[in-house]
């Protein structure tokens, strides 16, 4: 069974008279443990697709199954629970809460999950250690560098041990060196068994991924799997299903 299964998903926006088709019938399956890059020109619908996969948005039509659950039929509260448990979202603009320190930012998803505070603190520390920020727990976002902020955001996305990690242009606001470090972190996380989907404009970011999905005009224009580069872990062979 696929982790993610999209069936003929459409998403349109009504702008007065005009209807904008951001996605026109996207069908897609992603397996557990995959590392997928989504590419495509600006306005091709990448973010729209990510938001749908991340349950931040709901499709205009089509079916979405996540982990065997039919997301497209869920109500608000069920969607919130899915976002909380199954999905870790990393944004281009970090989106940390400015008045909370790193630790408390990372704790937040656990708060919504109802995890007691002691346990929460422990898990958050762990996640921050995992992204190499064990020594920055009490720093607020404005006391951290861009790369560090994105690491905090990644720790926040990881802390609930979600089924998928979604990142929409996670390096878009970072210089290339820091961007490299963040991408290396994603690879490491993927090696540890996380499923990762990244939206990117950069070919060399995409090159690290096992699979590149290309969008154009709200549709899939290409879906390539390539062999892992030398020295990297072999892809867990997905159980093919049709």
């Amino acid at each position: 069974m696929s982790l993610i299964r999209l069936e003929n998903i459409t998403r349109c926006y009504q702008m007065g008279e005009e209807t904008i088709h951001a996605l026109r019938g996207v069908s897609l399956e992603i397996e557990r443990g995959e590392y997928v890059a989504i590419m495509g020109p600006s306005g091709s619908g990448k973010s729209t697709l990510m938001n749908l996969i991340g349950c931040l948005d709901t499709p205009s039509s089509g079916g979405y199954e996540l982990n065997g659950a039919r997301v497209s039929e869920m109500d608000d509260n069920e969607l919130a629970a899915i976002r909380n448990r199954e999905i870790g979202f990393v944004f281009q603009t970090f989106n940390l809460l400015a008045r909370l320190n790193a630790l408390r930012n990372v704790e937040l998803p656990l708060v919504y999950a109802g995890v007691p505070s002691g346990e929460r603190r422990r898990l958050a520390r762990e996640a921050l250690a995992q992204v190499g920020l064990a020594d920055r727990l009490r720093h607020r976002p404005n006391q951290l560098s861009g790369g560090q902020r994105q690491r905090v955001a990644i720790a926040r996305a990881l802390v609930n041990r979600p089924a998928i990690l979604l990142a929409d242009e996670p390096t878009g606001n970072l210089d290339s060196k820091t961007g490299e470090e963040i991408m290396a972190l994603f690879v490491e996380l993927w090696r540890n068994g996380n499923t990762i989907i990244i939206v990117t404009h950069e070919e060399d970011v995409a090159r690290r991924a096992r699979r590149v999905i290309r969008l154009r005009d709200g549709g899939i224009a290409g879906d390539d799997r390539h062999k892992p580069a030398s020295g990297e872990r072999a892809v867990i062979t997905p159980v093919a299903q049709t």
Partner: peptide, 13 residues
Amino acid sequence: REIGVCKAIGARS
């Protein structure tokens, strides 16, 4: 935006 973030990481309405 903060509300959006909280909802994105699982805050219910």
